[in-house]
Design a protein around this nucleic acid. Structure first.
Lengths: 205, 205, 205, 205
DNA sequence: GATGAATGAGCGTTCATTCAT
DNA sequence: GATGAATGAACGCTCATTCAT
């Protein structure tokens, strides 16, 4: 009988629903200004019931950030891998990243706010995860660029540093777009980032 | 009579002393983990007395961050202005920025932690300030690069976007250095940033 | 038709099973540290089902203590009644009591722990029961001693007070044995209690 | 200047006032049914202020019980030591004990209730203290009786056991008096306890 | 009959802020 | 001016109880 499966399905749907509400609320107000009761109310559950899904407020927050980030990285990595040569991969990397930010503004604003504080045990994990994700991405891009060097399309600069630069050029555009209630779409910045990253700003006389 | 002036002088010295202690403590523990009593104790004043200088904990925090940042930007702008041509200015901009981060690790880590949350009215101000500072810096660098374009040393790309890229390349290096208990000094990254910003990563044919 | 009887029989078996588990768990952890869910799980029933047998957690607790005590007193009274003369009866009273404590350590420790608090209506009942039981025992022993007086083997002291003394001499030994992870069996104290109760401690010169 | 002393004096008076109120309330309702707010209100202070005197609810409770017991034992020991021969000492021991119970009914009722549960760290201490106090009292009385044996007024029975019996004969009377809203003063029981303890209940020949 | 998912009241504790001295 | 004693609002979490199935 599929009763167990139905239960499980329901469990995950509810969990997802809670996380979705949590994302909205945390994104809007920040971890400390949100009460468990608010998330419960928004989710349409009682406070106590949330504890069936998450061990506590911090776990809930952690899960929400963590899973959202996993989603982002998964998408990016998958799309990059599907691309052809190194230049295409770089292009896709940039676009995919910007795309996620554009579609998840509120969530991303969490990182402008930071919120990483209160390193009270559970929260520390999120920091570790953030760092790990960052380093993994760094390595991923590094490998990408190394191949570019091998292919002869990229200068033989320190690859990890180059990776750092590329990643933060992307973040740069994202941050500006998030901070300044700005003009135009974020993805429209892709060409520009690509251009500067590849060619620099110096005019070859 | 200079009594009023003496009072004022004393006021500012005390205020500065409090901010100095606040910086240490907030940097080390984060906004939420610090109590007003701790700052008072470290400053050698009573809790109540702090309220003569700041309207509340958040104002104190805001003031501390704000003034520290002003200091940073003032230094950078001053040094950049003192430099010669555009390339030198870019060079100094990078170096000056990295230098500040290197010398104020704990303070800068505040921004990794975020802490910007609690947008409860007062805190929002800090966000606005952060944004303003950012935009001002963007404009400053934009102007710099525009001159570079005029001088013919820089390609005629959208200057504001270029400025964003440069600033975030600097921030990129800073963030990595702060996050990863890494190897080597931060300032040693200067040449590298300069190189990529000016020349890009693409190997010319 | 015996259907009703079967139902009833089943009801009582289940009730007894729950009480048996409850005794173990409450004895080990104390009223406040035990959750209804734990007892339900241990009994192999659902939480909701327990409420078919008991009105609530306190009632369950009360019932368990109450019935266990009834059991104890029943045993003691039966054994005493079966004994021959007054001295034997006293001897059996002591032994039977100590025996129960020895065999039900965990349960008895409940009374060291107290647990009688929370006099929230229902719990008060247990207090009343405790008192009633105590008074009944007092009367029982009183009657015993009165006969002893009549028989001329016991001094004509106030019988109720004597009864109190005897009961508490027994409790004294029990409490000490429960509190101090002590040496030797509890029942070995019987002769001693008997001796002092009958002869006092004064050396007849 | 006696300012510090005045402060200290005030501190102790307030602490004592809180403990006095706490005693009343805890005695009446039991640890779990009392809220910090109630004690605060009864003491005329705000909840937060109580935490200047005690680390938390449990510490407050522990302190109250502990200090009250110390008071009791101090009084008893002092009075016993001041008495003349062994028989007088025994007499004083009984009287002093009964007297305390009579004058501190509500407090003593705590031990009928037990309350020893919730052995959550701090509470465990109270158990340890209770045990220690008990053992110390046991030793105290034991020594007393040993001297009695040496003096030839007491039979050479195991002194520790005898001590246990005496203590619990006293407690017996106390418990009965506390449980049964009874007739007559508790101290009137002294002669009786003394008599039975010394002479037993057996009618000679 | 049995279940167990769902509820939501209840409480200890912290700490920014005030104000009498 | 300076103090620091006193305040009390605010919140995460547990778990006995209920009731739809």
């Amino acid at each position: 009988m599929g009763k167990v499966q139905r239960k499980e399905r329901e469990f995950h749907m509810r969990r997802a629903a809670i996380l979705a509400e949590a994302e909205k609320i945390f994104s809007a107000k920040g971890f400390h200004k949100v009460t468990v009761a608010q998330i419960a109310a928004a989710s349409g559950f009682s406070t106590g019931f949330l504890y069936q899904f998450f061990e506590g407020k911090e776990h809930l927050y952690t899960a929400m950030v963590s899973e959202k980030l996993d989603m982002m990285y998964d998408t990016i990595y998958r799309e990059v891998k599907a691309a052809g040569n190194t230049k295409d991969k770089i292009s896709v990397l940039i676009e995919s990243h910007l795309c996620f930010v554009e579609e998840n503004m509120d969530f991303c604003r969490i990182f402008l706010r930071g919120e990483g504080d209160t390193l009270s045990g559970v929260m520390t994990e999120i920091r570790r995860k953030l760092l790990e994700d960052y380093l993994r991405q760094l390595s991923f891009v590094e490998k990408l660029l190394k191949e570019g060097v091998k292919e002869g399309v990229i200068r033989a600069l320190p690859p990890r540093e180059m990776a750092g630069v590329l990643i933060h050029m992307i973040r740069a555009a994202s941050v500006r777009w998030l901070m300044v209630p700005s003009e135009g779409s974020l993805t429209s910045q892709k060409r520009f980032i690509e251009d500067i990253f590849l060619n620099g700003v110096k005019k070859n006389e």
